[in-house]
């Protein structure tokens, strides 16, 4: 399967089976388009057809190049990965550990019911339950050496003292078992202080801080319990935290809504504030909310990703470098095919644990009826539900089988599929469309940056040194 597209005014082709990405000129784009539409066409027919609009010599060259790429296995390669074994059933190696089902903000779009997760009581994780969660993860991790634990909420820093003790316990477990914990934290940043910053920088492999962008955009959706904006509470703390962290291993992560479809301005605002590792995600919420994103917004959003892509290229070239999560796809390497089929591992390799010790497929499933998998307190675990998630890989989803993006999105978010379509195997279409657009932009950016680097190297090679 070949996906032909244009992004950032650049004609491109992705060979789905091999993962090879090609930048094309207009002749190659037209030739490959014709070949896709006329699978049985001979080279002579292709040349005859395209010579009406392009010089025959160029068309001949192009067809030769395309045939060469096909012969080398970089175009039109088989993409039948259906027989890949899915690995060890029953192994869990990653956990979203809910340190708090409470929050010091009241974000309007919060999927977690402003921290309470639709539970009766706001509550904090006890040290004892946290330790039992790590014990459970070790016990379920089979022969895996690398384990991940993300402290999540609500707002996890409301329970900082417990996090410290749980991490210390994890370090002891590492010595006893030979396994390694990769601890991370997702926070709104309100509670950051010197002690917490130093601890997070010492112990956390990655920290995600939620900031939506421009002050008015952020404050509209992320108020405090008394209704005031939280931008001023967070921004300087986040800057200091990132400075102490040497701009490494963090993300400033925002959410955009129907209210700010010009979200490129929010990404650029955060870049202007000195943050270099940025991500902004579309809100996922009930369609009747005034800030929900709908199908009608897609053309505007596509334009905005293109606009962000152009500015991204410009800034990275002129010394104002920053990284945008969705434009940073490792096209030359990337995960192995098995990881691409299984994605985040939801409900299988990856689970969430609540302050009550309950186990859910991931943080977004917490509190949903019928989705509790067990408890770290009594050791119960629904192996049948785990198996259902294990077999819910991208190739098992009817909608994904013929999608060119299936080895990049891995079938999308199961929680969104469940929420919007009532079935973890039926992906949420709006999410699919946005992901495809972002991938196209990422591939074009990769090609354009590579071209610019090549041009710079070539220029350096042929330019004489300046006269002294």
């Amino acid at each position: 399967m070949i996906h032909l597209f244009r992004a950032l005014d650049t004609p491109m082709a992705l060979d789905v089976g091999s993962g090879a990405v090609h930048a094309l000129d207009e002749i190659a784009f037209d030739a490959l388009t014709y070949m896709q539409e006329h699978k049985d066409a001979t080279d002579e027919q292709i040349v005859t057809e395209l010579s009406a609009t392009h010089p025959m010599t160029d068309v001949n060259e192009t067809v030769g190049e395309l045939r060469s790429l096909i012969a080398q296995g970089y175009l039109d390669t088989p993409d039948d990965y259906g027989s890949v074994p899915l690995g060890d059933a029953g192994v869990v190696k990653a956990m979203c550990l809910h340190a708090a089902h409470d929050c010091n903000l009241r974000c309007q779009y919060c999927f977690a019911d402003m921290g309470a997760y639709h539970m009766r009581n706001r509550m904090l994780l006890s040290v004892d339950t946290g330790k039992k969660a790590l014990d459970w993860l070790i016990a379920k991790s089979g022969n895996r050496q690398n384990l991940e634990v993300d402290f999540f909420g609500g707002e996890p820093l409301l329970n900082f003292s417990a996090i410290k003790e749980i991490v210390a316990y994890g370090r002891e477990l590492e010595k006893m078992t030979g396994k390694r914990f990769r601890f991370t934290t997702t926070t709104n940043g309100v509670g950051l202080n010197d002690e917490i910053m130093d601890f997070l920088n010492r112990e956390m492999n990655n920290v995600v801080i939620s900031i939506d962008g421009r002050p008015d955009v952020h404050d509209r959706m992320r108020p405090t319990p008394n209704g005031k904006g939280s931008y001023d509470l967070v921004i300087d703390k986040a800057k200091e935290f990132v400075r102490r962290r040497n701009q490494q291993k963090y993300y400033i992560r925002g959410t955009y809504t129907h209210y700010n479809l010009d979200f490129a301005n929010d990404v650029l605002h955060l870049a202007d504030e000195g943050f270099q590792q940025l991500s902004i995600e579309p809100v996922v919420t009930a369609p009747d909310k005034p800030y929900a994103i709908g199908e009608a917004d897609l053309p505007r959003i596509y334009e905005e990703y293109e606009r962000l892509g152009r500015e991204y290229l410009k800034r990275r070239a002129d010394g104002r470098w920053f990284s945008f999560f969705h434009f940073t796809v490792d096209l030359s390497g990337g995960p192995c095919i098995k990881r691409r089929l299984t994605g985040c591992g939801v409900g299988n390799e990856y689970v969430a644990v609540t302050p009550e010790g309950d186990i859910y497929p991931c943080h977004q499933f917490v509190g949903r009826e019928g989705m509790k998998m067990g408890s770290v307190l009594d050791g119960s675990f629904d192996a049948q539900m785990q198996k259902r998630f294990q077999h819910n890989h991208v190739l098992a989803k009817e909608k994904c089988r013929d999608c060119w993006a299936r080895f990049y999105c891995s079938g999308g978010c199961a929680a969104n599929a469940h929420a919007f379509n009532g079935d973890i195997a039926k992906p949420f279409d709006l999410e699919c469309q946005l992901e495809r657009k972002r991938l196209e932009c990422a591939m074009a950016i990769f090609a354009l940056e590579q071209e610019n680097n090549l041009a710079a190297v070539e220029k350096e090679a042929v330019e004489p040194p300046p006269c002294l």
Partner: peptide, 30 residues
């Protein structure tokens, strides 16, 4: 090549050690 530039070049069927990160872009098996 004059008309096509291959910028990135899956059939890792080397892979599958299961040690990489799980949770909601990023690599023993040898």
């Amino acid at each position: 090549m004059k008309h096509i530039r291959t910028v990135a070049e899956l059939r890792s069927l080397y892979g599958g050690c299961g040690e990489c990160q799980a949770s909601c872009k990023t690599c023993p098996a040898a």
